[in-house]
């Protein structure tokens, strides 16, 4: 059962860490980016789908040669997806990673490991002597 608390609770008080200002700051920074962004791209996608379903005549408005508004808006969905992706990468590298790694290093120094690590880690760290994959299955 994944109860890391049994092994690690003694070393780390998660609720105390959770209430620290630097963790709250990390959480706020993360949510202040991903929540509004998610609302924006979902609304923009939904608007596009509704337009395609219920106002195809708007999509048919010609823009350039045979390229109509529908094609332009569709390609714009691709473009915004790429832009939001790039924006998130740069935001998380600059604003999130330094904050989260500071807390992570501190907790790892205090001995926090994987959740439910106990059986797996023990098994993986000692190289299985003879029968690997194939042998186990027979």
């Amino acid at each position: 059962m994944s109860s890391p608390t049994a092994t690690h609770a003694a070393t780390v008080d998660y609720q105390e860490v959770q209430s620290r200002p630097e963790f709250q700051e990390l959480k706020r920074t993360h949510r202040s980016f991903v929540f509004p962004m998610a609302v924006v791209f979902l609304a923009w996608y939904l608007a596009y789908v509704l337009l395609a379903a219920f106002a195809p005549q708007i999509m048919a408005i010609p823009v350039l040669g045979n390229i109509n508004l529908g094609i332009v808006l569709g390609l714009a969905q691709f473009l915004t997806t790429f832009l939001i992706t790039a924006a998130y990468v740069s935001f998380s590298t600059k604003a999130l990673d330094p904050k989260s790694s500071a807390i992570r290093h501190e907790l790892e120094a205090a001995g926090v490991g994987l959740p439910d690590e106990t059986p797996t880690a023990a098994d993986t760290s000692e190289p299985t002597p003879t029968t690997p994959a194939g042998g186990a299955s027979r």
Binding site: V17, H30, S101, E108, L114, P115, A121
Partner: peptide
């Protein structure tokens, strides 16, 4: 609430996860 706090912290910081 302790588990909730632990999940909150693990999910945002990746504590311990990289050891894998």
């Amino acid at each position: 609430p302790a588990k909730q706090a632990e999940m909150d912290i693990r999910s945002l910081t990746g504590v311990g996860a990289e050891k894998a």
